[in-house]
Amino acid sequence: MNNPSRRRFLAVTCATAAAVSAGPTFAKVGNTRTLRMRNLHTGERLNTAFWSGGGFDSSGLKKFNRLLRDHRANEETRIDPKLFELVYKLKEKLGYDGEIEIISGYRSPKTNAMLRSRSSGVAKRSYHTRGMAMDLRMPGIPLSKVRQAALELKLGGVGYYPKSNFVHVDTGPVRRW
């Protein structure tokens, strides 16, 4: 056992076995996750990665923060990166490769209060004001299917607004309305 070549052989063999058995994990670590979105209020489009090299991509996240800003107040906030994971998993579950239309992302407290004064459907402590919610639709996918897929993911709140033609998703507790 003190033979250096035998120890080297065992080390290489063990390392190779570990790498082979962990192959799929290595494949997942290096993948890139991209979202294509269009903000319906500003007309801005973005097709960029929010995840690359095994972690969240800070440059991509900054671009998404800008896209999802409160367009009324022109205010940005840090959008919860888990929200992009949720939306990515939703599009994957639906087999959707198109552009995701954004109705609402971040809302400043002032904008949220204004919208709340006009509609009973706006929550006082909306997850939009915390950068944890998005109202969206996926053209070509029935809204009811988007809702059902979001519910099945069980990754946060899901609101269904068929009259307004969008689904709300957030990274808060799992719930539905």
Rank of each mutant, 00 (worst) to 15 (best):
1 M>R: 07
2 N>R: 10
4 P>A: 08
7 R>M: 13
8 R>I: 08
9 F>R: 12
12 V>L: 03
15 A>F: 13
16 T>I: 07
17 A>C: 08
18 A>Q: 08
18 A>N: 04
18 A>T: 12
20 V>Q: 03
23 G>L: 11
26 F>D: 03
31 N>F: 05
33 R>C: 04
36 R>Q: 13
39 N>Y: 04
39 N>G: 12
40 L>C: 03
41 H>V: 04
42 T>N: 00
49 A>Q: 06
51 W>V: 13
51 W>P: 06
52 S>I: 04
54 G>L: 09
58 S>P: 10
62 K>P: 07
62 K>Q: 13
63 K>N: 10
66 R>V: 11
69 R>K: 15
71 H>I: 14
78 R>G: 06
80 D>P: 10
86 L>A: 02
86 L>W: 02
89 K>Y: 03
91 K>A: 06
91 K>D: 01
91 K>T: 07
92 E>K: 05
98 G>Q: 10
98 G>F: 12
103 I>A: 13
106 Y>P: 04
106 Y>D: 03
107 R>P: 01
108 S>C: 06
108 S>V: 07
110 K>M: 04
111 T>W: 02
118 R>N: 06
119 S>N: 09
120 S>N: 11
122 V>E: 11
127 Y>H: 13
128 H>V: 11
130 R>N: 08
135 D>W: 12
141 I>Q: 05
151 L>D: 01
153 L>N: 04
157 G>I: 08
158 V>T: 15
158 V>L: 05
158 V>G: 02
159 G>E: 13
159 G>L: 07
163 K>Y: 03
164 S>P: 00
166 F>K: 11
168 H>G: 08
168 H>Y: 10
177 W>G: 15
177 W>V: 12
